[in-house]
Computed example of a mutant assay.
Amino acid sequence: MIQEQCADRNNVQTAEKPQVSYKVGIYGWRKRCLYCFVLLLMVLILVNLALTIWILKVMNFTMEGMGHLRITKTGLELNGDSEFLRPLYAKEIQSRPGSPLFLQSSKNVSISILDGKNKAVTQLVAGSSGIHACCKLLEVKSNTGKLLFSADAHEVVVGAEKLRVPGAEGAVFSNSVETPHVRSEPYKELRLESPTRSLYMEAPKGVQIMAEAGDIRATCRSEMRLESKDGEITLDARKIKFPRLPEGKASATGSRQTVFEVCVCPNGKLYLSQAGSGSTCHINSSVCL
């Protein structure tokens, strides 16, 4: 009986004890903030995805490259005009077969070759003021490999068969010129001129001046000397004229003298003397004084 009463009391206490329930989750303003954050994140993802697709479309990204840039087995291939804002480092730059290669810049185009110490040993600069080249040796060759032009610190070599200077003033040389042959163009005259200094022509085996279809004229302001140390000077022509030789007269005569004798002074000066039955040079030797 006592056990049954205890059991009844426990049941009554259990039935009278209140039941407490707990809510699990986010409610109120926290829930609304979470939903707004998730919605904003979804919008950002969609916008980012749309921008990525738009960039891929505009830049023309493909499996071979992007835009005008293509990746090939031999390197990179650019089609159309390309602009580089930073230095370009490449082992080789060439155009497509049959197409020209253009290099364009708003200021200048510089090509430099560096040594192991990053010092420019060869440099080519093409700008608005001109083309400047800095190198130890400059060579220009033909398609067959023949040397056409060469220049270094010691000499300049012109390997072409003919050097033509079409300027009106011709060619000006401040120092000596060494050449085996100087000639003018057909039907043009050749002039060797030194306006303010002397003109020398030297050769170990002789100097030949020849004009096959024209005249030869030598003009100077002070003195002209024809000198031969070991040989002779030959004047071979049908007529040899000395129009300005001084004339010496032995005596005044009424008849005009038409025949003269050419006399030579000890100092080499030439003059004319009236011809007579014998030499009259000794009579007019006063001209030599």
Rank of each mutant, 00 (worst) to 15 (best):
W54P: 00
R32F: 09
K107Q: 14
S174Y: 09
F37E: 12
R32C: 08
A211Q: 05
A252E: 13
P100F: 00
R164Y: 14
E261A: 04
E261Q: 10
S286G: 15
V121P: 02
Q123Y: 06
V182P: 06
Q274G: 14
M66L: 09
A160G: 15
R217M: 06
V264M: 13
Q3W: 07
S285T: 10
K23I: 06
V121H: 04
S251V: 07
E77W: 01
Y27H: 08
I131L: 11
K107D: 10
V38Y: 11
V38G: 01
T62F: 10
A171H: 02
I55P: 00
K136H: 09
K205L: 09
S255Y: 04
L147H: 11
F84G: 08
R183S: 15
P18M: 02
L76V: 04
I113T: 08
S228W: 07
R217V: 09
Y35L: 14
S150D: 05
V165N: 13
L147E: 14
A237L: 07
A171D: 04
E193S: 15
L226W: 09
L69Y: 07
L103S: 01
G167W: 10
Q208T: 05
K57I: 10
L270C: 04
L163D: 03
R9Y: 09
L101Q: 00
I233R: 03
G254Y: 02
H181V: 14
E83S: 12
G130R: 05
A50E: 11
K107W: 11
F102V: 00
G248T: 02
V24A: 08
P204N: 04
G248M: 04
C134T: 14
A7F: 06
F149C: 07
G167D: 15
C6S: 12
S105N: 13
L103T: 00
C135R: 00
I53M: 03
P87Y: 05
K117A: 15
I2D: 11
I209Y: 01
K188C: 10
G170W: 06
F61L: 13
C281E: 06
I131E: 02
M224L: 14
E92W: 01
L245A: 14
K229A: 12
L41G: 15
V264T: 15
G28Q: 02
L270H: 06
P246V: 08
L148A: 12
C281K: 06
L272K: 11
G268A: 07
V158R: 00
G127T: 06
T62Q: 07
V24L: 13
I216H: 08
H154N: 06
G28R: 01
